[in-house]
Each structure stands twice: as C-alpha cells, then as structure tokens.
C-alpha cells in the first residue's frame, strides 16, 4: 500500500507526459511517406499505393543503395501495391484484376524483371524471388532527363486504350505500358468508310474560319483515318463511329488512340451516289456548332 501511494505522483506525471505527446504520427516527418496514384482509363481503374523513399544525398541508388540482383519493391516499408479494377495487359502480358504486390529484380546489364506477387502483405525485406510472381514482365530501364529526389510513380501519358506507368527515382526511369479493354470501336464498315474519303472543309456557321479535314479509308484496319490541318500542322485523326453516318473525332498519341472528343457529333448527310457531301458538327445539346462540306475527292 505504501509502495502504491508513493508511485501515484510518478504515475500521474507519466500519464501527463503521455497525454501531451501526440500519438498520431501524421504530424511528424516520416521516412518514405506513403503515396498513391490513381487513374481511370476508359472505365478501368488503376491504382498504385506505395511508400516514397528519398535519395537524401545518396547518388548511387541502383547498384548501391539497392544492390544489383536484389528483388526490390519499388518503394519502401510495405510492398508497393498495384490494384486493377479490370483485366489489363502489362507490357503485353494479360493480367487479371485484383491487388498485386510489385517487386522488381534489378539486373545490371539487361532488362529488369517486374513481378506481380499475389501476397500483398510482404514487407520490403521479404525479397520474394520473381519466379514466385503471378506475372513477370521484362522492361529495360532508361536514364531520366532530370534527377528525381523522391521515388515517384506517374502516368505521363493516358490514352483511350491505355497508359504509360512511369517509375522515376534518381536518374533512373522505368516505363511500363498498360493496355486496357477499350470501349472505343474504331472500325467502320467498308462501304460507309469509303464514302467518307475525300477532302472536306468545316467551320462555324456564318463565319470565315474554316479548316481542312482530309479523310481516307484504310482498308487493312477498316478505319477512317485522316488529317486535320491547322496552319502548317497536320493532326492525325480517326473517325469513331457512333451510328451510321455519325462519328466522333479521335486523336492519336503516337500510333495509339488518344482522346475522343465525345461532345461533338459529326453527322454526314446529303448523299450523292452513296457518298455524303456535307456534315454538321452537333454538340450534346444537339446545337449545330460547325458545318462542313466536301471540297474534293
């Protein structure tokens, strides 16, 4: 009893110290803070959940901080997780939806092996062999144009049919191609597609602001391709069919479909010998925004 009574002040003091100390770590600087990248690509949600280590003056990151031959999670602490809401192709490899642990076997002279591991609970010290990955793809790292202090995932290119997932740390960059199941139908029935081929010009009704649009039917791919000329630049485009004679305009990123302007409808009409001679561009409120006419071909 005497022991207890003498310890009460000490206990209260300790309690006071504890209560004055923040339990929550959110107010503190934590090494390798957690980060997240989330991107929806034509209905497929892709999410990367990872810790973000910084270089902190360490210049030799790969080969020194992370030794060659090690299976490393691109992050820190708990393994980096990749969540896919639908099936995708990663570097051309079909990957099922779900959450995967991401691990990379670092190869000094050759492509790195990126493995998606079914166990997402592993700590970064687990180093599971890439052979245990459900999926393994090989990617050649490249030199980043600028030094990136804190490890970073990004998607610098999001297209209509996929995206580039990019990992940067220090001077090293790893780019992974993600292809999703696209809802965009690019093929056009041959007879209809051939009918659109030719030179067109369109602009705002009543204004002198027309611009050329040249279309052709690409028989091998069954697509209506073309160029929209603006000044001295030609923008490659494709006509994305919505109904017979009604299209939306799609732009390319490289040779892949990029964005589809889904608020404009190119509606072709005034058919002569089975080929349209005019079109209207209507918005989603069905107002006519542009008018076009065939000028050749």
């Amino acid at each position: 009893m005497a022991q207890f009574s003498t310890s009460v002040p000490t206990f209260l003091l300790a309690l006071a110290v504890l209560l004055s100390t923040p339990f929550d770590a959110t107010g503190q600087i934590v090494a390798s803070e957690r980060g997240r990248l989330e991107q929806t690509i034509d209905g497929t949600r892709v999410e990367i959940d990872y810790s973000r280590p910084s270089a902190r003056g360490r210049t030799g990151l790969f080969g020194e901080v992370v030794p060659w031959g090690e299976t490393w999670t691109p992050g820190a602490n708990a393994s980096t997780k990749l969540t896919l809401s639908k099936a995708v192709e990663l570097e051309g490899e079909p990957v099922e939806p779900g959450t995967w642990g991401v691990w990379i076997e670092l190869v000094e002279d050759g492509p790195w092996k990126v493995a998606l591991h079914p166990d997402t609970s592993l700590f970064h010290t687990a180093h599971p062999p890439v052979s245990e990955g459900a999926y393994v793809v090989e990617v050649v790292p490249e030199q980043a144009p600028e030094f990136v202090e804190t490890l970073q995932f990004s998607m610098p290119e999001v297209r209509g049919d996929g995206a580039t997932l990019q990992l940067d740390w220090g001077r090293t960059r790893l780019s992974l191609d993600i292809a999703v199941e696209s809802s965009t139908v690019l093929t056009v029935p041959p007879e209809e597609g051939r009918g659109l081929a030719g030179a067109w010009e369109f602009g705002t009704p009543g204004e002198d602001d027309g611009m050329p649009l040249t279309l052709r039917y690409d028989e091998p791919t069954e697509r209506v391709l073309g160029e929209w000329t603006q000044g001295t630049e030609d923008y490659p485009v494709t006509m994305v069919r919505q109904a017979e004679g009604i299209y939306q305009l799609g732009f390319f990123v490289g040779d892949r479909i990029g964005e589809v302007i889904n608020v404009w409808y190119f509606e072709f009409f005034d058919y002569q010998d089975g080929r349209p001679t005019a079109f209207e561009v209507r918005d989603t409120g069905d107002e006519i925004r542009f008018e076009g006419r065939r000028v050749g071909g």
């Binding site: 034509d42 209509g160 809802s183 919505q242 109904a243 589809v260 889904n262 989603t284 409120g285």
Partner: peptide, 11 residues
C-alpha cells in the same frame, strides 16, 4: 445540355 451526359464512346 438538355440531353445529359453519356459515356466516352458507344461500344
């Protein structure tokens, strides 16, 4: 718009 929004493209 009186017609409301719709998806990116019609599959």
């Amino acid at each position: 718009t009186a017609l409301g929004s719709r998806r990116v493209s019609a599959p």
